[in-house]
C-alpha cells in the first residue's frame, strides 16, 4: 500500500507536466479550423473592392510589375523574364513558399529580399529601396501569380530555429504598452481596438493595398506599424527579426490561400 502513494503522485506529476507542456507550447494558438483571413473581418464594401479586379487598386501595382518584369536592366542587361520566362507559369505558388531558406545567407529571406538578390546577382543592378514603388510592384506581380495557392513555407532543420525565433518575438511582451502580438491576435481577435476589428493577423494578401495608407505596402511595413502601435522600437526593414516574424506568421497561416493584392481597411 505505501508503495502505491509515490506512484500515484508520479502519475499526477506526469499529468501536471503534460498540462504545463501543453499550455506553454500551445497557449492561445488558434485551432487550424478556426483561422480566418482578415478578409472575413472586413466590411462588405471593402470586400467588394478586393473582389473586383477593376476596383482593387492593388492591381495597378500588379500591372506596373508586369512591365518591370519584362524590362531589361543592370550591367547584365537582363530582364526577370529572360531567366524566369512567363511569370504566370514560373512564379505560380512561389510567394506561398516565402520566406524561404537561402544557403548563401544561411537564413530565410523574404520575397522582397529575393527580388533584390536577383537584381544584384543576376541583373547586376542596384537593389531597390524598401517600400519603393518598383519593389512593391514587382513583389505584387510575383505574389499575384500565387493567388489562390495555399501557403506552404518549408519548415526543416535549417529553418526551424528561425521559426522558433519568430514565435518567440510573437509571444514576447514589448514596448511601453507591454503587449505581445499574441495577446491581441491570438486571444482577442474579433473584438475591437477603438473602431477597428482586431484580425487574426494572417499574412495572406501581401503586399496589401491599405485604405489607411492610400497605397500598397509590404508585410514588413505592416509589422513595423503594429510595433509602433504598442510603442516599441520597430525593427529596421530587412532585419532578421522581421523576417523571422514573417516566417512564423506564414507558418501560422499554412494552408490558407494567397489573396494578393488584398485590400485592407
Amino acid at each position: 500500500m505505501p508503495a502505491a502513494r509515490p506512484r500515484r503522485l508520479g502519475l499526477v506529476g506526469a499529468v501536471l507536466a503534460a498540462i504545463a507542456w501543453a499550455t506553454t507550447t500551445w497557449a492561445g494558438d488558434i485551432p487550424l479550423a478556426e483561422r480566418r483571413s482578415s478578409y472575413d473581418f472586413m466590411s462588405r464594401e471593402t470586400r467588394a473592392m478586393q473582389d473586383d479586379d477593376t476596383a482593387n487598386p492593388g492591381l495597378l501595382w500588379v500591372l506596373e510589375g508586369e512591365g518591370l518584369w519584362k524590362r531589361a536592366l543592370g550591367d547584365a542587361g537582363r530582364a526577370c523574364s529572360d531567366c524566369h520566362g512567363d511569370a504566370r507559369a514560373s512564379m505560380r505558388g512561389v510567394a506561398a513558399r516565402y520566406p524561404a531558406f537561402d544557403p548563401a545567407e544561411g537564413r530565410p529571406i523574404d520575397l522582397e529580399q529575393r527580388i533584390n538578390r536577383c537584381r544584384t546577382d543576376r541583373q547586376r543592378a542596384t537593389p531597390l529601396p524598401w517600400e519603393s514603388r518598383e519593389l512593391l510592384a514587382l513583389t505584387a506581380y510575383v505574389a499575384h501569380q500565387s493567388r489562390g495557392a495555399p501557403i506552404a513555407v518549408s519548415i526543416d532543420p535549417r529553418t526551424q530555429p528561425f521559426l522558433d525565433a519568430g514565435r518567440a518575438i510573437w509571444d514576447r511582451r514589448q514596448g511601453q504598452l507591454n503587449l505581445s502580438c499574441s495577446q491581441c491576435h491570438d486571444d482577442l481577435y474579433g473584438r475591437k481596438l477603438a473602431g477597428n476589428v482586431i484580425p487574426q493577423a494572417h499574412p495572406t494578401g501581401y503586399p496589401i493595398y491599405r485604405l489607411e495608407w492610400q497605397t500598397l505596402g509590404s508585410l514588413e511595413r505592416r509589422l513595423r506599424n503594429c510595433l509602433t502601435g504598442i510603442r516599441a522600437e520597430p525593427y529596421p526593414y530587412g532585419s532578421p527579426e522581421l523576417v523571422d516574424l514573417e516566417l512564423y506568421l506564414m507558418w501560422r497561416a499554412r494552408g490558407m490561400p494567397i489573396e494578393t493584392p488584398a485590400v485592407r481597411p
Binding site: D53, T54, L59, L60, L63, E64, R133
Partner: peptide, 8 residues
C-alpha cells in the same frame, strides 16, 4: 508612372 484600369 501612370497606369489605369478600365472595365467595359
Amino acid at each position: 508612372m501612370a497606369s489605369a484600369l478600365v472595365n467595359v
